[in-house]
Each structure stands twice: as structure tokens, then as C-alpha cells.
């Protein structure tokens, strides 16, 4: 048991601190295009989201990320905390393939009481190095989000969207 705890502690420390030169800051915007609203197919523009993430390398290709995202969607505005993983792999000179999976927890901005909201967001796409320190990203994916309490106020409280994402990443070190 002691060996397992030591191994896990070492692994966490190794993952967390083994690379301190690959941190990135990512700023992104999503155009949200509808697929499903509640349980019905529904296309059309659903809104936008703007976010910022800090990415920390776990190894050469994998990074964990944390950040925040603001969404302007059908029920109004919400703000969520992001936590997730990003995987990227070079495919050619200056070009990389990248995939991200994010879990979101936050609040729909209502008063007098804010409502809990959560979501799952995935994106995959292409990164292009515009300089030694920065890249741009264009991709797409799936985004599911739900505001359970809003079901009492509206006929629609959860959605599945097809976002188109444009992002900019800068190396911090």
C-alpha cells in the first residue's frame, strides 16, 4: 500500500513538474451551431462562446488545461470553469493536429438566483505556428450543455451544438 501511495505521489509530481517550459495560454471563440435542443433536432445559430485556458504540459503531446468560458446562448448568459485535456501532434512543418476535451461547471447568470449549469466540450482541428511562440487554431467538435433548473422556466434546458472554433495560443515560457 505504501509503495502504491509513493508511486502515485511520484507520478503526480513528475507529471505536474517535469516540464515547466511548455505552458501556453489559449484564447478562443466559438460560433455555436445547433444540432439538438432538448430532445428535438434544431439547426441554426445558437450563440457564441469566448474563453481563455491555461495549458500545462504533461508530456510532449499531452497537456492539462484549466480556464474559464463565457457563453451567450439561448437561455441568456453563463460563465463556466473549464478543466480538461489537450493532445497535439505535429503533422508537418508548422502544422499540428490538436484535440481537446473539456468538462465545464458553472452558473447561468440569472438574478436573484444564479442557476447551476454544466457541459462537455470537445474540439479537434489544426494548429498553425505563426511564430516560435504562438499558434492559431481552427477546429470543430461537439458541445453539450445543460441547465437543469431552467427546465422550470422554459421548455428548453439542454442543447447539443456543433461549434466552430477559432483560437490563438501563446507560449508563456
Amino acid at each position: 500500500m505504501k509503495r502504491i501511495i509513493l508511486f502515485l505521489t511520484y507520478t503526480v509530481l513528475f507529471i505536474g513538474f517535469s516540464r515547466i517550459n511548455g505552458q501556453q495560454l489559449s484564447i478562443y471563440a466559438n460560433s455555436l451551431n445547433g444540432i439538438v435542443a432538448e430532445n428535438n433536432f434544431e439547426g441554426g445559430s445558437r450563440g457564441i462562446s469566448l474563453g481563455i485556458n491555461y495549458l500545462h504540459p504533461l508530456n510532449q503531446n499531452l497537456k492539462w488545461l484549466a480556464g474559464t468560458e463565457f457563453n451567450s446562448i439561448s437561455w441568456g448568459n453563463n460563465i463556466v470553469a473549464n478543466i480538461g485535456l489537450n493532445y497535439s501532434r505535429p503533422i508537418a512543418n508548422k502544422w499540428s493536429w490538436s484535440a481537446t476535451l473539456i468538462i465545464q461547471q458553472g452558473i447561468a447568470l440569472f438574478k436573484p438566483t444564479a442557476f447551476y449549469t454544466w457541459g462537455l466540450s470537445s474540439a479537434t482541428g489544426i494548429e498553425y505556428s505563426v511564430s516560435s511562440k504562438s499558434t492559431i487554431f481552427l477546429g470543430t467538435g461537439l458541445k453539450y450543455y445543460s441547465c437543469p433548473a431552467y427546465k422550470s422556466y422554459s421548455l428548453l434546458s439542454h442543447y447539443l451544438d456543433f461549434p466552430i472554433e477559432l483560437g490563438y495560443r501563446i507560449k508563456l515560457k
Binding site: 448568459n77 460563465i79 447568470l109 440569472f110 438574478k111 436573484p112 442557476f115 422556466y153 421548455l155
Partner: peptide, 20 residues
């Protein structure tokens, strides 16, 4: 980032309706 989040949270709140 903190200022952005706080500003959005304070300024973008909608008044909620009565329940259906």
C-alpha cells in the same frame, strides 16, 4: 482574467421569470 470574469458575472445577469 479575474476582472473580466467578475465584470461579466455582474453585468450579464438576466432577471428570471416566474416558473411555468
Amino acid at each position: 482574467i479575474c476582472i473580466f470574469v467578475i465584470t461579466i458575472t455582474l453585468c450579464a445577469c438576466s432577471s428570471s421569470s416566474d416558473t411555468l
